[in-house]
């Protein structure tokens, strides 16, 4: 099994354990894992930027008339 399919398999499994995580977020994490940024350990600045980017994708309009 190739390296890439191993990674895809892990992402699929993690997604199945957190089904409410949006596809957009999963794609963002997947893109990071394949990026040059993931070739070395993240420095604090890159880490903050990445976290904010991921959290930014969470701030989509939500239903508010239910509790």
């Amino acid at each position: 099994m190739s390296e890439k399919s191993d990674q895809e398999q892990m992402i699929d499994e993690a997604k199945s354990l957190s089904p409410d995580v949006s596809d957009a977020l999963v794609a963002e994490v997947s893109a990071f894992l394949n990026s040059d940024l993931n070739k070395t350990e993240l420095n604090p600045s890159s880490l903050r930027q990445l976290s904010e980017k991921l959290l930014g994708k969470l701030n989509e309009p939500m239903q508010t008339n239910e509790n």
């Binding site: 499994e13 354990l17 957190s18 995580v21 994490v29 969470l58």
Partner: peptide, 14 residues
Amino acid sequence: IKAVEDLIAFVSNL
């Protein structure tokens, strides 16, 4: 909170 926790759980499981 749930959305953040879900995301954290996803990253943690990964």
